[in-house]
Protein backbone atom coordinates (compact mmCIF):
# COMPACT_ATOMS: atom_id res chain seq x y z
CA UNK A 1 0.00 0.00 0.00
CA UNK A 2 1.70 3.17 -1.19
CA UNK A 3 0.89 6.27 0.84
CA UNK A 4 2.10 9.83 0.47
CA UNK A 5 5.12 9.40 2.76
CA UNK A 6 6.34 6.42 0.83
CA UNK A 7 6.75 8.50 -2.29
CA UNK A 8 8.97 10.98 -0.46
CA UNK A 9 11.81 8.50 0.03
CA UNK A 10 15.13 10.08 -0.86
CA UNK A 11 17.78 7.53 -1.64
CA UNK A 12 21.13 8.14 0.07
CA UNK A 13 24.03 7.82 -2.28
CA UNK A 14 27.06 5.87 -1.00
CA UNK A 15 29.10 9.11 -1.34
CA UNK A 16 26.74 10.95 1.00
CA UNK A 17 26.92 8.16 3.56
CA UNK A 18 30.71 8.26 3.72
CA UNK A 19 31.32 12.01 3.47
CA UNK A 20 32.43 14.28 6.29
CA UNK A 21 35.58 14.36 8.41
CA UNK A 22 34.21 11.87 10.92
CA UNK A 23 32.72 9.63 8.27
CA UNK A 24 31.37 6.14 8.82
CA UNK A 25 34.65 4.80 7.48
CA UNK A 26 36.53 6.94 9.99
CA UNK A 27 34.34 5.66 12.84
CA UNK A 28 35.02 2.10 11.70
CA UNK A 29 38.77 2.74 11.65
CA UNK A 30 38.67 4.43 15.05
CA UNK A 31 36.77 1.49 16.52
CA UNK A 32 39.22 -0.98 15.06
CA UNK A 33 42.41 0.65 16.36
CA UNK A 34 40.78 1.84 19.57
CA UNK A 35 39.63 -1.64 20.51
CA UNK A 36 43.06 -3.11 19.74
CA UNK A 37 44.71 -0.43 21.85
CA UNK A 38 42.35 -1.06 24.80
CA UNK A 39 42.73 -4.83 24.58
CA UNK A 40 46.52 -4.45 24.28
CA UNK A 41 46.44 -2.64 27.64
CA UNK A 42 44.32 -5.47 29.07
CA UNK A 43 46.83 -8.03 27.73
CA UNK A 44 49.75 -5.98 29.08
CA UNK A 45 48.17 -6.00 32.54
CA UNK A 46 47.61 -9.76 32.33
CA UNK A 47 51.21 -10.45 31.28
CA UNK A 48 52.47 -8.15 34.03
CA UNK A 49 50.36 -10.12 36.49
CA UNK A 50 52.04 -13.43 35.59
CA UNK A 51 55.49 -11.82 35.56
CA UNK A 52 54.97 -10.33 39.02
CA UNK A 53 53.04 -13.12 40.74
CA UNK A 54 54.19 -16.19 38.79
CA UNK A 55 51.95 -18.87 37.33
CA UNK A 56 51.70 -21.30 40.25
CA UNK A 57 49.05 -19.50 42.36
CA UNK A 58 45.65 -21.05 42.95
CA UNK A 59 43.06 -19.58 40.55
CA UNK A 60 40.19 -20.38 42.94
CA UNK A 61 41.39 -17.73 45.39
CA UNK A 62 41.18 -15.01 42.72
CA UNK A 63 37.83 -15.98 41.29
CA UNK A 64 35.70 -16.93 44.30
CA UNK A 65 32.90 -14.48 44.98
CA UNK A 66 31.54 -13.21 48.24
CA UNK A 67 28.77 -10.64 48.48
CA UNK A 68 29.92 -9.57 51.97
CA UNK A 69 33.62 -8.90 51.44
CA UNK A 70 35.19 -6.14 49.37
CA UNK A 71 36.76 -7.39 46.11
CA UNK A 72 40.58 -7.49 45.99
CA UNK A 73 40.60 -5.63 42.65
CA UNK A 74 39.78 -1.93 42.06
CA UNK A 75 36.07 -1.23 41.55
CA UNK A 76 35.83 2.51 42.06
CA UNK A 77 37.38 5.21 39.91
CA UNK A 78 39.55 6.50 42.78
CA UNK A 79 40.76 2.97 43.64
CA UNK A 80 41.51 2.44 39.96
CA UNK A 81 43.54 5.65 39.82
CA UNK A 82 45.60 4.54 42.82
CA UNK A 83 46.09 1.05 41.34
CA UNK A 84 47.22 2.38 37.96
CA UNK A 85 49.70 4.85 39.46
CA UNK A 86 51.20 1.96 41.43
CA UNK A 87 51.34 -0.13 38.23
CA UNK A 88 49.11 -2.77 39.79
CA UNK A 89 48.61 -5.38 37.01
CA UNK A 90 44.89 -5.88 37.61
CA UNK A 91 44.45 -2.11 37.80
CA UNK A 92 45.97 -1.86 34.32
CA UNK A 93 43.59 -4.57 33.09
CA UNK A 94 40.63 -2.61 34.47
CA UNK A 95 41.94 0.59 32.87
CA UNK A 96 41.84 -1.19 29.50
CA UNK A 97 38.19 -2.12 30.13
CA UNK A 98 37.24 1.47 30.93
CA UNK A 99 39.00 2.66 27.78
CA UNK A 100 36.79 0.25 25.81
CA UNK A 101 33.70 1.83 27.36
CA UNK A 102 34.87 5.39 26.70
CA UNK A 103 35.71 4.44 23.14
CA UNK A 104 32.07 3.55 22.49
CA UNK A 105 30.88 6.79 24.09
CA UNK A 106 33.39 8.82 22.08
CA UNK A 107 32.29 7.03 18.93
CA UNK A 108 28.73 8.25 19.43
CA UNK A 109 30.00 11.80 19.98
CA UNK A 110 31.96 11.62 16.71
CA UNK A 111 28.85 10.41 14.92
CA UNK A 112 27.00 13.47 16.26
CA UNK A 113 29.72 15.82 14.96
CA UNK A 114 29.73 14.04 11.62
CA UNK A 115 25.97 14.39 11.13
CA UNK A 116 26.15 18.04 12.22
CA UNK A 117 28.79 18.74 9.58
CA UNK A 118 26.54 17.05 7.02
CA UNK A 119 23.71 19.34 8.20
CA UNK A 120 21.73 16.23 9.04
CA UNK A 121 20.17 17.74 12.18
CA UNK A 122 17.76 14.89 12.80
CA UNK A 123 20.53 12.31 13.13
CA UNK A 124 22.64 14.84 15.06
CA UNK A 125 19.90 15.05 17.69
CA UNK A 126 19.60 11.25 17.78
CA UNK A 127 23.38 10.89 18.32
CA UNK A 128 23.52 13.64 20.98
CA UNK A 129 20.62 11.99 22.78
CA UNK A 130 22.44 8.61 22.86
CA UNK A 131 25.65 10.34 23.98
CA UNK A 132 23.87 12.09 26.86
CA UNK A 133 22.21 8.85 27.98
CA UNK A 134 25.61 7.10 28.00
CA UNK A 135 27.23 9.92 29.98
CA UNK A 136 24.35 10.03 32.45
CA UNK A 137 24.71 6.28 33.00
CA UNK A 138 28.24 6.86 34.31
CA UNK A 139 27.05 9.66 36.59
CA UNK A 140 24.07 7.61 37.80
CA UNK A 141 26.39 4.67 38.36
CA UNK A 142 28.68 6.88 40.38
CA UNK A 143 25.81 8.12 42.53
CA UNK A 144 24.55 4.57 43.01
CA UNK A 145 27.99 3.31 44.01
Amino acid sequence: MATKEHELVVERSPEQASSGIFSEIFIGTLLKYGVFFSIAIVALGAILYFVKDGVGGKAAKLVSYSANTQPYFPHTLSALQTAVTHLDPLGIVTLGFLLLVFLRIFQVLLAAVNYLLQRDYRLTLVSVFVFLVLMSSLILGKAGG
Binding site: H75, V93, T94, F97, L98, V101, R104, S137, G141, G145
Partner: peptide, 17 residues
Protein backbone atom coordinates in the same frame (compact mmCIF):
# COMPACT_ATOMS: atom_id res chain seq x y z
CA UNK B 1 28.49 0.55 27.66
CA UNK B 2 25.32 2.02 29.19
CA UNK B 3 25.19 -0.57 32.00
CA UNK B 4 28.84 -1.54 32.52
CA UNK B 5 29.47 1.39 34.90
CA UNK B 6 26.89 0.04 37.34
CA UNK B 7 28.49 -3.42 37.28
CA UNK B 8 31.99 -1.98 37.66
CA UNK B 9 30.99 -0.08 40.80
CA UNK B 10 29.26 -3.17 42.19
CA UNK B 11 32.60 -5.00 41.98
CA UNK B 12 31.23 -7.49 39.44
CA UNK B 13 34.00 -6.99 36.89
CA UNK B 14 36.79 -9.28 38.10
CA UNK B 15 39.83 -8.44 35.94
CA UNK B 16 41.34 -11.91 36.36
CA UNK B 17 38.25 -13.45 34.74
Amino acid sequence: AASVGVYFLRGSINPFI
